[in-house]
Simulated assay, not measured.
Amino acid sequence: MISNWNSEHAWTYEIDPILEALFRYIDSLSLPETPYVTGRPPVSKKSLLKCFFLKTYFSIDSLRKLVRILHRFRCFQRACGLGEVPHLSTFSRAAKWFREQGFPVFHAQLLKDLEVRYPQIVLIDSTALRSSLYDSQAKWGVSTRYHWFKGYKLHLCTTAEGIILSHVLTTANRNDAAVAPELLVSLKQWDIEFVLGDAAYDSEKVRQTAEQSGILFISPINRRNSEERKDAYGRVLPVFLKTRFGQWLFGLRREIERVFNELKSDGLEQPRWYGFHRYVLHVLCCILMHNFEFLL
């Protein structure tokens, strides 16, 4: 996209209003800075964070290419608050910091500003993210849309309004029910009554994990398990889902499907990319940008 621009166009480029609002929000955050001891003065983490969102917004496939674009287009340097373009190694260290420490701080503050306190109903699901066939870290998996594909899976928990509460990115071969307990544990800080999942989450372990957090987990009976289901859950749930309340409640699951559609239309899936950490950085920025739009 950017490689076709000329320098004259870059100097007159006006940043997208949503991206501009996001950058102002980043300036308002309280992020710990690395103290200056020796060597060159450190680059502001807020400026580096803006660069990562710029990378995601334009689907720039590598940090190396991001550095080249920042050198070429001075308007992007100014927008990110950079006096000069940092070295590639600086971006690499900052990306690791963001994945491990920066994202949790940013995400928690964003949910606080969105006043997400009592999400009584939470939705859980996953979506396939294809990657390059040459990606050595990706795995083969099955999805209803792509059938067999190579890549990763993004597992999300969202509110009924579409705000993303928690996520896990795995390789494509991971089963949804195996990842669900990790997502459910992350929901303990909220007073949640129901978690709604599809038949892929029909697992006793998933329901037990939810019960330990005081959550009622509801999912349809998986047809592969239907013949051997003689427990109370297997007898009661099909009847409950036929009631008016059950149909309304489970109909809310359409919202998480809409969230996945929005994320993918905004560039979440990158079939030509390779590398787990590269995909993680992109996914984290996509999640934050999605939630940030609820503030506007």
Rank of each mutant, 00 (worst) to 15 (best):
F53E: 14
H71F: 10
L49C: 07
R64T: 06
I60E: 01
F58E: 10
S47I: 05
F52D: 08
S59T: 10
T56V: 12
H71K: 13
R64Y: 06
K46W: 07
D61F: 12
D61T: 15
K46N: 05
L63Q: 02
L49S: 01
L54K: 12
I60L: 03
L70Q: 00
S47F: 10
V43Q: 08
F52Y: 10
V43A: 07
R72F: 01
V67Q: 01
K45I: 08
L49F: 09
K50P: 07
K55P: 11
H71R: 12
I69M: 09
F53P: 12
Y57N: 13
L66G: 00
L70W: 04
T56P: 04
K45R: 15
Y57F: 15
R68W: 07
L63C: 09
S44R: 00
V43E: 04
K46C: 07
T56K: 13
L70D: 00
L54H: 11
R64D: 08
C51G: 00
R64E: 07
R68N: 09
K65Q: 09
Y57K: 15
K45M: 07
R64C: 09
K45Q: 10
S47L: 10
K55R: 15
L49I: 06
R68C: 09
L70G: 04
R72Y: 00
Y57V: 13
F53C: 14
C51F: 08
C51P: 05
S59K: 11
K50Y: 06
K65D: 07
R72E: 03
K50F: 02
S47W: 13
K65G: 02
F52T: 06
F52A: 03
L54N: 11
L70P: 05
F53G: 14
C51L: 07
